[in-house]
Amino acid sequence: MTLIQAVFALLAILTLGAGLLTVLSRHLFHAVLYLILSLLGVAGLFVLLEAEFLAGVQVLIYIGAISILIIFAVMLTRGMARNPGPPLNNQSLAAAVIAGLFFVLLAPVIAGFPWPQTTQGVPADTIEALGRSLVDPNQFALPFELASVMILAALIGAIFIAREKR
């Protein structure tokens, strides 16, 4: 096992273990902390995949913004946190069977398929090319603008829905 594979294994265990604890932990606040750990593991895997920009964005947006938003929501709905009750509903066994079966179905397909693989390295100007492709009319300029409109709509919608009605 090479060093890179060892690092991959560590990150994979971190991501999956923290993800599992996210869906299983009884306290919602602990679940958020485990979610942050899992997202950090995914960011590490992005670094391993040489997508440094995405790793940075993952840390900034997921860990910096979305997690804080979730923590706010946990704090604001603290009646649940004080008296959590059972975290899982009565169909949790069926859910486990379904999720497990789905993985059992996927795993042999993924492992058995002869994935084509390039030996090509990542170009040095990937981030620049990514930035250009986002504003290039022939590539992603339209989705990019649509995404900003959608973010604005979500922002206004979230404020309107969550504000105190008088």
Binding site: T15, V23, L28, T77, S92, A95, F102, F103
Partner: peptide, 20 residues
């Protein structure tokens, strides 16, 4: 990771946990 998420969506009772 996706299957863990599927399990969480189907089995959790708290809406915030489902979002996570």
């Amino acid at each position: 990771l996706f299957c863990i998420g599927v399990y969480g969506v189907l089995a959790r009772r708290n809406a915030i946990a489902i979002l996570m």
